[in-house]
């Protein structure tokens, strides 16, 4: 039987550790991805992820279900990312190595993908990562939540405590700057509708 997040939260509060275990398993990767894309450091993203679940666990008794559990987790993780950036007083760091490790890459290859496509995709990934790291934090966060976590505009507004129109403005401006940077980096191509 598959429990909803909220049911698992209720069971965790009642002392069922396996339920919290299930929540961790369910959300560890999204939270890690959010942290990594926000701060750009693998190890620190893991720490943020760890701290997010620890705080969530500690805060479970106070969680009244006023928001979705996932939104609550996202909020904790984003606050931790902000704290991290404040402490570091710097923008996200791009860790992408200069050299391409073909062996490592091959492990991530899609069955139908040639090695040339794979290298190109990896290069594009680095370019996008660098371009994202240069965006202002607010625009970057809006893009991350929308593109990689599939939140609606309203959910992002609720999460960031800002008006709906602000979310759309940040997203639009972020995408505009991003596509300019990608063009300057030599990334071409448009998607015809």
């Amino acid at each position: 039987m598959t429990w909803t997040d909220e049911e698992l939260v209720a069971r965790s509060i009642r002392g069922d550790s396996e339920s919290f275990n299930e929540l961790v398993l369910r959300w560890e990767r999204p939270i890690y991805s959010l942290a990594y894309r926000t701060i750009g450091r693998e190890e620190d993203a893991r720490d943020v992820c760890q701290e997010t679940f620890l705080r969530a666990f500690r805060g479970l008794p106070a969680f009244r279900g006023q928001a979705k559990f996932s939104s609550w987790l996202y909020r904790i993780a984003l606050n931790l990312c902000r704290d991290w950036m404040r402490r570091q007083r710097r923008a996200p760091i791009v860790q992408a190595p200069e050299d391409v490790d073909l062996v490592e890459l091959a492990a991530a290859r899609e069955p139908s993908e040639s090695i040339e496509d794979l290298v190109a995709r990896n290069d594009l990934s680095k370019v996008v990562e660098r371009a994202m790291a240069r965006l202002p934090e607010e625009q970057r966060t809006a893009i991350i939540l929308k593109e990689y976590h599939g939140l609606t505009f309203q959910e992002i507004a609720d999460l960031l405590d800002c008006p709906l129109s602000t979310v759309k403005t940040r997203l639009y401006q972020g995408l505009s700057v991003l596509r300019k940077q990608l063009r300057e980096a030599g990334v071409q191509g448009t998607f015809e509708s």
Partner: peptide
């Protein structure tokens, strides 16, 4: 849409 497509590569 192109920008979104590129973002998917990251």
């Amino acid at each position: 849409r192109a920008a979104r497509g590129h973002l998917a590569a990251w």
